[in-house]
Design a protein around this nucleic acid. Structure first.
Lengths: 344, 344
DNA sequence: TTGAAAGCGCTAACAA
DNA sequence: TTGTTAGCGCTTTCAA
């Protein structure tokens, strides 16, 4: 491990000059620049971000806390996050909370101890409201919620516009002649902002149009596909299959779809499916799912933009008031083949 | 942001004592410990890992470079990695190479500049052989390949035992009366160690048993499900559907399965599928895939164990020779419903 | 254009 | 048991 010291020795220049060359700052004679470059190459020198961070009081580290990294929805946030990191020369530290609020808090603390320049949080438990409210008061780095929000907390967020989503989806099926919707949710998670907003949105839009709205809730299992599978199986065996279902997300829908195939229920002839997420490749089902694209890429894009704005304001002592800190991102319907057109 | 200085001021103790309390080291009077704790609470003090790292010459940062984080196989490595990080009080920095060898090298350099204590790499291009060979000579932190290896490189690795996998899978179908196997691969990736080993392994095992071995290669598309879907579609339309296929992985198999459903081809009556990976919940297909569990959890477990051993040896100046640095992990068949039993 | 020196927040060795 | 001090590898300010 070579350091500036070694370069100083090799070149005979001073620490300050070496630093200037490496940072590409100040006025340094071309000849001396070359000397430094040569020494760097010879030594296989590599800058030490840690030391630089200590000196500059930032780390170029961005924290990303998710709930369950194996959940395909959350996976979708990683790539755009990496792209941001690449473009802004920073690195991502990740941590997973696994639906455990203690762990979530520990993760936050570790991130703050790691002196991340910014922190993005995708939470899944509602138990840390107070903790987050407190963070909002005490921390000076930007902390931004992803795809969820807390009603009584000042932390900024970028979420999916679930009311808009609800309206789009109800519109879509209404236009195709559907007059009855059965909403399928997972009980334990039904009060998280996105699930709640969407469910209530669908209910409201149904009321407006005189559509019959029904709701069924299922117990959380190992994964959402399993829940969807069992939900469909139960309906099939009890002969209570609705004409149209709104599963809470694509994973649920896929399980549902496969139980239908298994039992010879035809899609969309016997049951239509309006899914939510657009997380999987279209070949994940025999007929492409009709689903609502949540645009997590946009969520991350907006969140990182917001982060930059907040940082800039704080670094330069500007007023932060003008920055919009509560954003909702609109998605769009992906037209697949799982909604029967009743008007034909 | 409070620091030791503030605690010193508040308690009247010295820096060294404060440091001892916070590290839980040395002998400090109970009363003074309490003082320090009280001051920490009052100040909302949080340790600065960056400064600690600079002083101790380690970061407690572990680097993880993957190829495509949205690939479900790679996602499977994150959770066990996080578990390790949690148990060993370190944090994970991730980076994604996206099948770009330049980016892969840049990622490595950034990790080394971040002074990670260890680096785990899941690579997908074969172009950086020389770069890695060089790293093996110059870097003193443990750098470990995950689920792949390079033939002429000293870097340690933990890979899936693909020859064993091949044997297991061929055995399984042989016992059920199959005497012909069609192996489906993606051309561009067929020379990566796991793909190559497995394909050659299957070929060899077929030869041993007098099974007819056929191979088909497909062009890489956006995702593997799509490739699988088109592969099946092509076979169906050209009426050349084999009796048994070995798709290169679960994603490929799912696409294949769904094209079959779409066209009314029955599984396993018309075509049997022996898949590879066990990456998805079993409800991802109407009938559970018969697949080989790659046990990426085990791969990560072994890799982190290897990391600890190497670190320990280097930290204590022990000889590293005794550490096994080339490991192969054995998986097992998951018996699903996609292999027809021809013996009945 | 270059050099000298202080400092970032911590650890660790040593002295008291 | 506590305090003092040097130092980790860099940046930055100021003087030369």
């Amino acid at each position: 491990m070579s350091s500036y010291k070694d370069i100083v020795k090799l070149t005979g220049l001073s620490l300050g000059t070496v630093s200037n060359v490496i940072q590409g700052k100040g006025n340094v004679k071309e000849k001396n620049k070359e000397k430094v470059y040569a020494a760097m190459r010879q030594l296989g020198y590599r800058i030490d971000y840690q030391a630089r961070g200590l000196a500059t009081n930032k780390t170029s580290l961005i924290g990303l806390i998710v709930s369950n990294i194996e959940n395909i929805a959350e996976t979708k946030m990683l790539m755009p996050m990496e792209t941001f990191a690449e473009n802004h020369k920073c690195r991502i530290i990740t941590a997973t909370s696994r639906n455990d609020s203690d762990r979530e808090r520990r993760n936050c603390e570790a991130m703050l101890s790691s002196k991340v320049d910014g922190l993005f949080i995708f939470f899944e438990s509602l138990e840390n409201e107070e903790y987050f409210r407190n963070l909002a008061e005490t921390e000076k780095i930007p902390i931004i919620f992803l795809a969820r929000y807390l009603d009584n907390c000042k932390l900024p967020y970028v979420a999916v516009d679930n009311q808009y989503a609800a309206k789009s989806m109800v519109d879509f099926v209404y236009e195709r002649g559907h007059r009855e919707i059965t909403y399928l949710d997972i009980a334990e998670e039904s009060m998280l902002s996105p699930n709640r907003d969407r469910r209530l949105g669908v209910e409201l839009e149904c009321k407006k149009r005189g559509i019959v709205y029904k709701k069924r809730e299922y117990k959380r299992l190992e994964n959402d596909m399993e829940v969807g599978y069992h939900a469909a199986e139960e309906m099939i065996l009890s002969k209570s299959m609705p004409s149209l279902v709104f599963p809470r997300d694509d994973s649920f829908a896929i399980g549902f779809y496969n139980a239908c195939i298994r039992y010879g229920i035809r899609i969309p002839e016997d049951v239509s499916i309006m899914s939510f997420g657009n997380f999987y490749p279209k070949e994940v089902t025999p007929k492409r799912l009709t689903t609502y694209d949540r645009r997590f890429d946009k969520v991350i894009h907006e969140a990182t933009l917001m982060y930059l704005k907040i940082r800039e304001a704080r670094d330069n002592g500007l007023e932060e008031d003008k920055i919009k800190k509560k954003l909702f991102v609109k998605g769009n319907i992906i037209v697949g083949e799982t909604i029967k057109d009743l008007t034909k």
